[in-house]
Amino acid sequence: CHSECLGNCSQPDDPTKCVACRNFYLDGRCVETCPPPYYHFQDWRCVNFSFCQDLHHKCKNSRRQGCHQYVIHNNKCIPECPSGYTMNSSNLLCTPCLGPCPKVCHLLEGEKTIDSVTSAQELRGCTVINGSLIINIRGGNNLAAELEANLGLIEEISGYLKIRRSYALVSLSFFRKLRLIRGETLEIGNYSFYALDNQNLRQLWDWSKHNLTITQGKLFFHYNPKLCLSEIHKMEEVSGTKGRQERNDIALKTNGDQASCENELLKFSYIRTSFDKILLRWEPYWPPDFRDLLGFMLFYKEAPYQNVTEFDGQDACGSNSWTVVDIDPPLRSNDPKSQNHPGWLMRGLKPWTQYAIFVKTLVTFSDERRTYGAKSDIIYVQTDATNPSVPLDPISVSNSSSQIILKWKPPSDPNGNITHYLVFWERQAEDSELFELDYCLKGLKLPSRTWSPPFESEDSQKHNQSEYEDSAGECCSCPKTDSQILKELEESSFRKTFEDYLHNVVFVPRKT
């Protein structure tokens, strides 16, 4: 048989008469490798580009789960590009990614509803959504962080984005990388972005840091009482949809009607710091009717980097990364020049730590249904340095008659930039024990000054392991946590139920 035959053949030295091919099969003959313009397919066939392209389009058009959109890589027609490569849609070739590779997620039936953290986790790592997304989240724990972890990498949506009755959302900033909504599939009414009845939605994105392009379709905003109209108009300008909307697409009466839409800028007039305090004062603000001013709200939190936005980490279910302080308005003076500047002394802060701070007014709604208010920009203030805590785990070892090696770990709280350490030492008198000992005694162990690591005695271990207080009263049991108490109650309830079950099964009433 021919060298490319495997198993047997019907005619000697003829690659077209093989029972099976050793390498690849091409047009009725066995070959060692697939010549151009053919590609290896499933490690035994040679196919042309049209064959591989037909497989790709067949799966793409069917949208069946589990099928493969075949691509070409290293002269092979394979189910998908290997790690580190992405497909070129024009020629199906796998090309190296520039940075992290995109991950295209194809949605069944063309859309997916995100109504819980669990459903959001199914899209973790996706960068391109081939379909439409509907966000409908009523509640949950730590929602802002969970949504950002699972949806934060999405850069492109081919269909539309719909935010509907998501009472738990305060902001859409968890879509931190969303840059493009194509609108290839539109919501009824030709809408590519749809926001309806979101009672706590206050911000779409921080438009000073976020760009969003909507290729096709219109915007729809109705019944978002805490979303200011200025935020919607800003989205029109940034996304390129200005002029597409009709009169009733953006409701003037049901958007922002319960919001404090600040239209003035508060400026800080005085800032002073110490290692654990920050004193702030800002310019006074009074609405047209000074009785509408209820006070100020001061927001602050630790910020290692200057990239904080107002609604980071917030949701309507209680999660809030900001510390909020309510401040009463100052006494009002008739003389504008003698107006008191409101302020606040922030206490209990960490030394040498940068804080993000902003302040906003708290006002009631005027009778004319106009909203007044003022808010400052987010500023960054760093507390002063102070003395560091003591170095940890000092170790001293003498390696000769004239040297001592000293080692330690950095302090747990540096409280500033540590530039150097101060080492103090003092000579001590020799131990009298060394002169009084009889060095001729056998088995004498000389006193040693070398360091030995501390260890816990058996008594201390027994005390720590004991669940009861000892007789001397030195140790006591740790208080039980809520989960331990709940577990004990469940076990007790189970024992009672099981005992009742045994009584009912074992003891049967005697027939009379």
Results as ranks from 00 to 15, higher is better:
106 H>Q: 13
109 E>F: 15
110 G>L: 13
113 T>A: 11
113 T>Q: 07
114 I>W: 01
114 I>F: 02
116 S>K: 03
117 V>M: 09
118 T>I: 02
118 T>F: 12
119 S>C: 09
121 Q>I: 03
121 Q>T: 05
123 L>K: 01
127 T>E: 01
131 G>H: 02
138 R>E: 06
144 A>E: 12
144 A>H: 01
144 A>C: 01
146 E>G: 06
149 A>I: 05
153 L>F: 13
153 L>G: 13
154 I>C: 06
156 E>R: 06
158 S>N: 06
158 S>H: 09
160 Y>L: 15
176 R>T: 14
179 R>E: 09
180 L>K: 12
186 L>Y: 13
187 E>Q: 03
191 Y>P: 07
193 F>I: 10
193 F>V: 09
197 D>I: 02
204 L>A: 08
205 W>K: 06
206 D>Q: 06
207 W>L: 07
210 H>M: 13
211 N>V: 09
213 T>H: 15
215 T>M: 13
216 Q>F: 13
222 H>V: 04
237 E>L: 13
238 V>R: 09
241 T>D: 10
246 E>L: 06
249 D>A: 07
251 A>T: 13
254 T>S: 06
255 N>E: 06
256 G>K: 15
258 Q>Y: 09
259 A>S: 05
263 N>F: 14
264 E>H: 11
277 K>C: 12
278 I>K: 00
279 L>F: 15
279 L>P: 00
281 R>M: 07
286 W>A: 10
287 P>H: 04
288 P>R: 12
288 P>K: 09
289 D>P: 01
293 L>F: 09
293 L>K: 03
295 G>A: 11
297 M>S: 06
298 L>R: 00
299 F>G: 10
301 K>N: 15
302 E>P: 12
307 N>I: 12
308 V>K: 07
310 E>T: 02
318 G>L: 12
321 S>E: 09
321 S>K: 10
328 D>M: 15
328 D>A: 13
333 S>M: 11
333 S>N: 02
335 D>R: 13
344 W>K: 15
345 L>W: 13
347 R>Y: 05
349 L>K: 02
350 K>R: 15
351 P>S: 10
352 W>H: 10
356 A>Y: 00
357 I>E: 11
358 F>M: 07
359 V>F: 02
360 K>P: 00
360 K>A: 12
361 T>Q: 02
371 T>A: 10
378 I>P: 04
382 Q>E: 12
383 T>C: 12
383 T>V: 03
384 D>F: 02
388 P>W: 00
391 P>Y: 00
392 L>R: 11
393 D>Q: 15
397 V>P: 03
398 S>C: 02
400 S>P: 08
402 S>V: 03
402 S>N: 14
407 K>M: 11
408 W>K: 00
409 K>A: 03
